[in-house]
Design a protein around this nucleic acid. Structure first.
Length: 646
RNA sequence: GCUUCUGUAGUUUAAUGGUAAAACAGAUCAUUCGUAAUGAUCCGUUGUCAGUUCGAUUCUGACCAGAAGCUCCA
């Protein structure tokens, strides 16, 4: 007999060799029916796994993240089976669970169409009705290769696993067998509600030089109502898409003749940019000891050769001129680093001068691949709150922490602090081509960063191969309405580029030393942040970020003089406001202001003129009644100055 | 760059191998109105370039642009 400790600390005894499924059944029929996978200790296992020794056991259902993934993963096998039945020539490759569902990649002659998806769904329904059990079995690599000999993709995977001396595990349901590590549901019939959402291209193993596969995305749930709720939530989220709302509300637009990835900020977008920019610059200068630079938007290729960009990033740069023909070739800058380094290089620095904190509102140009552009989130020209800190090694920790603190303060003020996550982006030691410097330097830089992050008790995920070519990064990540994650801000430790540029300081002992460098952004890329703010607030910007904060709405011409007086008072108080003096009904003017999501409307009629007051309407709370002009001005000013987010 | 899809007025949407429709927006006129749409009149369009055709917005191709995904993202 073995002792199994369950959730909540209950201990039960079972025969050795009992499976997790059997334990679940023993605990309750409901739990058994809902079980998707299990966890023994910290190890995720299939429900069929026999348990041979004392352990902690958790039965995972669809409500657990890992249970969901097993559910979706099984759904992907179900889909693969349906595809195999309908398109026998389609070769299966891989099909994992992802956030919100699953996909499966197939090698096919002709990509699937929307009609094909409908047929595949119908076939899946038929299979579910039959209700095949899934069974797991293992083979020696040679046997596995024999079984999958007609599938070059599976063969490649088997050979890789075999190289590690592993047995090869398979899952089989009905007549469909797939190479897979699991875990899986015991039975496909549990997958009651599913939808195939889209079909797209994908590369084998994510490598653009290899086979182009056809991917089908889908999602699945135990209940139809859950599926409906999910699909509705996805639709709702899309309504907040900055690319839609930002254009509708006239924050930005694009023009075919100007080019891809080159959005135009309209007056409202430009105003929001200015609000954020002034706020960031003031904060950096007044609270964090930055000095500003203003450096050129382009440079000779020589500069990028020193920085390493010419070797590591030339494809991503807009080069002006022809290297073959022209004596000198220029390129638009894809980053600010070497420009600010040259500011540093222009004079001698003592250890007493450090840290030097250079900030710049910096416009950059990156020649992104044509399929990459997305609204304001991925563009070819953008402006970031750039900064480089030149430091002595002993200053690294403090300065790094301050960079993180600055970011956190800004994220708090603009209301995104609870929407961001942190990523520790490391180099890939197996892909040294992409990086400069030695393994020792990388280990040192990453060790320094890890210590600081842990010292700050920061929660972060680690990602290999996401580092900059010159150093590790702490990336501040945020998801857009489509669930796609992008980097908002970054703080990077660079022990390498000071050497490339021969940047030095004179130490206490008179020797020349190489400084450490921190590359960082505080608010990140303005365009991207504006995009994510639009999505966060569905266009209804908090007062302090609203391009137009108050609109004065006189009911008729008779109130014009008084209304303009109110406008002047607001302007004097620094409130961004306009007046709508058109001869329209008040309901019409209100509707427009409401749809433009202006925080406050001030209705002015004879009563207000008489009482020297204003009738306040808020976009969220509606008619708030009348108050004196001064009362409203101080209320508006307070909300603006305190950066109220509600 | 790759896969799939899309492109009709400023915007949202309709229709068609044979003169392209509506709403909103805009302009003009009238209306001076109390918390989400006053009325009338006018204005304006098939992304671009080729091809097929007597005739193309419709079919085909290329290009341009947009969407989702892949790849990429210093």
């Amino acid at each position: 007999m073995i002792k199994i400790t369950l959730k909540g600390g209950t201990v039960k005894e079972y025969e050795a060799g009992v499976t997790a499924a059997e334990v679940a059944k023993d605990l309750g029929a409901g739990l058994y029916k809902a079980a998707c996978a299990a966890k023994i200790g910290n190890k995720l296992v299939d429900l069929r796994t026999p348990i041979t020794e004392d352990c902690e056991l958790a039965i995972l259902t669809f409500d657990d993240d890992e249970g969901k993934r097993a559910f979706w993963h099984t759904a992907s096998h179900l889909m693969a089976q349906a595809v195999q039945n309908l398109f026998p020539a389609a070769q299966c490759t891989i099909g994992p669970a992802v956030d919100g569902g699953f996909f499966y990649d197939f090698a096919v002659e002709k990509p699937f169409t929307a009609e094909d998806l409908v047929k595949i769904e119908a076939e899946m329904k038929r299979i579910v009705k039959e209700g095949a059990e899934l069974t797991r079995f293992e083979l020696e690599p040679a046997e596995a290769l024999e079984l999958m000999k007609n599938n070059k993709f599976k063969t490649e995977l088997i050979n890789e696993h075999a190289g590690k001396g592993e047995k090869i595990s398979f899952f089989k349901q009905g007549d469909f067998t797939d190479l897979c590590a699991g875990p899986h549901l015991p039975d496909v019939s549990r997958i009651k509600a599913f939808k195939l959402t889209s079909t797209t291209g994908a590369y084998w193993r994510g490598d653009s030089t290899r086979d182009n596969l056809c991917r089908i995305y889908g999602t699945a749930f135990p209940k139809a109502s859950e599926l409906d709720a999910y699909l509705e939530a996805v639709e709702e989220a899309k309504k907040r898409d900055h690319n839609k709302i930002g254009r509708e509300l006239h924050y930005f637009c694009t023009a075919d003749v100007i080019g891809q990835g080159l959005p135009l900020l309209m007056p409202k977008g430009a105003k929001l940019f200015q609000i954020l920019n002034r706020y960031v610059q003031d904060k950096e200068e007044n609270e964090y000891g930055y000095v500003m630079t203003r450096t050129p938007l382009m440079a000779k290729s020589d500069l990028y050769k020193i920085s390493g960009h010419w070797d590591h990033y030339k494809d991503g740069m807009f080069v002006l001129g022809d290297e073959e023909k022209d004596k000198e070739v220029y390129a638009l800058r894809p980053m600010t680093c070497p420009f600010q380094y040259n500011v540093y290089l222009s004079e001698m620095h003592s250890y007493r001068d450090l840290p030097m904190r250079y900030g710049e509102t910096s416009t950059l140009f990156r020649n992104e691949a044509s399929g990459e552009m997305h609204g304001l989130i991925r563009v070819r020209q953008f402006t970031i709150s750039e900064g480089h800190l030149i430091l002595r090694p002993d200053q690294l920790e403090q300065e790094f922490k301050n960079c993180v603190r600055l970011i956190q303060e800004i994220m708090t003020d603009i209301g995104l602090i609870n929407d961001i996550s942190y990523r520790f982006s490391k180099w890939d030691p197996n892909d040294t081509e992409k990086y400069i410097g030695t393994a020792d330097m990388w280990n040192e830089a990453e060790g320094l960063m890890r210590n600081i992050l842990d010292d700050m008790n920061m929660k972060y995920i680690e990602e290999i191969g996401e580092a900059a070519f010159y150093g590790p990064k702490l990336d501040v990540q945020m998801k857009n309405v489509h669930g796609k994650e992008d980097t908002l801000c970054t703080v990077q430790i660079d022990l390498m580029l000071a050497r490339q540029f021969d940047m030095t300081y004179v130490a206490q002992d008179g020797t020349k030393q190489y400084p450490y460098i921190i590359h960082r952004t505080s608010l990140g890329c303005y365009e991207r942040t504006i995009a994510l703010l639009l999505e966060k607030y569905a266009g209804a910007m908090p007062m302090w970020l609203s391009p137009e904060q108050v609109r004065v709405l006189p009911i008729g011409d008779a109130q014009s003089e008084y209304a303009n007086g109110v406008l002047a008072k607001l302007k004097k108080a620094g409130i961004r406001c306009t007046i709508d003096e058109r001869r329209e009904k008040i309901g019409y003017k209100i509707r427009e202001a409401q749809m433009e999501k202006i925080p406050y409307m001030l209705v002015i009629g004879d009563k207000e003129v008489e009482a020297l007051s204003v009738a306040v309407r808020s976009r969220s709370a509606g008619d708030k009644g009348t108050m004196s002009i001064d009362e409203f001005v101080s209320l508006a000013k307070k909300e603006n100055d305190e950066k109220t987010l509600a």
